[in-house]
Amino acid sequence: MQQSEVAEAVRRAAAGDRGAWDALVESFSGMMWSVATGHRLGPADAAEVVQTTWLRLLENLDRIREPERVGGWLATTARREALRLLAHRARELPAHDEVRLDREQAGTPTPEDVFLGGERDRLVSEAFARLPDRCRQLLQLVVVVSPPYAEVAAALDMPIGSIGPTRARCLERLRRLLATTDPAVDVRGAGGR
Rank of each mutant, 00 (worst) to 15 (best):
T108E: 12
L24P: 03
R122E: 11
S29R: 10
F115H: 14
H39M: 04
Q2E: 09
T181N: 03
E59N: 03
G30M: 12
L139H: 01
A90H: 09
L138V: 09
A155Q: 09
L61H: 01
W33E: 11
A44L: 13
T52G: 00
V145H: 02
R11V: 08
R169W: 06
D45L: 09
M32Q: 01
P183D: 09
I160L: 13
G42T: 08
A9L: 05
A20Q: 08
G192I: 11
E26C: 11
M32H: 03
R56H: 12
L171S: 06
A13F: 01
V35D: 00
S34K: 02
R120H: 07
G164A: 15
P67M: 01
R56D: 08
V25G: 05
V6S: 09
R65S: 01
D97G: 05
A127M: 00
D182S: 03
A9D: 04
T110L: 07
L57M: 06
G30C: 12
E5Y: 11
R91W: 07
R122F: 13
P67E: 04
L138T: 01
A75G: 07
A44R: 14
L174C: 01
A190G: 08
M32V: 08
M1C: 01
V185E: 00
A179V: 07
R80F: 13
H96P: 07
